[in-house]
Write a protein that binds this DNA or RNA. Structure first.
Lengths: 188, 188
DNA sequence: ACGGTGATGTCACAAGGCGACATGCCCCTC
DNA sequence: GAGGGGCATGTCGCCTTGTGACATCACCGT
């Protein structure tokens, strides 16, 4: 029953998000999610590889923006990656603090979700590093610049999401990048 | 049958490693592993939280060595973490290249295992950062130094494991650390 | 020999995930 | 406007993961 539901993917993702918040990730079954969206369990699995994937819906977009920004800039590799994340901060995250906090608290509640988030970050990193390599950088340099940039983002993001924070994500990224430079510069 | 098998944990881990290599991780069921070790599926789950955990047996040791090294050194935070990884490289990895390569090729074959490895790294990172904080460093500095150090290790490790490499892991770590400094030092 | 303790085996079961097939909807064509 | 192809969805059944509850058996001290 209820065939042809428009935007099945979006409705499933939304249903999943709601249920994860209401009962927690582990207490929610895929059948529950499908039921709330008015669809079948099997349909869920055709649209998402996984129960966890329902929480990582918009992620592809992020990778696209990052790769584009990194590719088009002329700055040094590390600066390029940091700048790309600042762009992402403004374009994608800036006006979604509350949503991001809810999402993050769901993720924090489940080891499975943490693993998945880590993998998403990892594949993002790989994509950015590939973009840098495509510009002629060595594999090692590309990997280092990318991972360092991601580290900066990760730390800034953690501070941004923290309950008592009020600075903008882009500003935090700049701050953290500056501190990274300080820490790694002194050889003694 | 076959009660009181000595070193059940070790035998299960060994059986798992063999089977993962013979048939691949996904084609191996927990029942298979237990059977090869002469034990029951239920016993496996009492000794390992997970099918994946069987591949990450010795990991606790690594964390202990790292935390101890980081705590005892007097150098700057980033240097401390890098030095700790160099120690680990000599004490734990140096004479196990072939084993590490086999393990890595198993991990590369399964997304689930990659996620688990990422999480192991992440909890390792958290432990090291906590050790730095215990020495009086700010949360941000501790996180940055640790993550940068881990990045250096990660990149060096990837090169060490690569089929055509022959440098020692400790040397690679030093090389990569130097390059990280170069990349992050130039502000323009 | 006796009872206790801890490790193991047995059974049953919920949930994740997937292959195969059935069914209904929509649109295109003649 | 009837027929048919194609696509999204539903149904069914299956294997595997992971866990709770309970039965056993070995070993140990006494």
């Amino acid at each position: 029953m209820a065939r042809w539901q428009p935007d099945a993917r979006g409705r499933l993702a939304a249903a999943a998000f709601e249920l994860f918040r209401e009962r927690g990730f582990e207490q929610t079954t895929v059948t529950d999610i499908a039921a709330r969206a008015g669809l079948d369990k099997r349909t869920f699995y055709r649209l998402f590889g996984d129960k966890r994937e329902a929480l990582f819906s918009g992620g592809e977009q992020l990778e696209a923006v990052l790769v584009k920004a990194v590719t088009e800039t002329g700055a040094g590799p590390f600066e390029a990656v940091v700048a790309a994340f600042r762009l992402v901060a403004d374009e994608i995250f800036a006006d979604r603090l509350e949503l991001v906090r809810m999402r993050q608290s769901i993720i924090a509640s489940s080891a499975e979700l943490q693993e998945r988030e880590l993998r998403k970050m990892s594949s993002l990193t790989a994509a950015v590093a590939a973009a840098l390599r495509a510009k002629g950088l060595s594999a090692t340099t590309a990997a280092l610049a990318t991972e360092s940039g991601v580290t900066v983002f990760r730390v800034a993001y953690a501070r941004w999401v923290a309950p008592d924070s009020d600075a903008s994500l882009a500003d935090l990224i700049a701050e953290v990048a500056a501190e990274l430079r300080t820490i790694t510069s002194a050889p003694g």
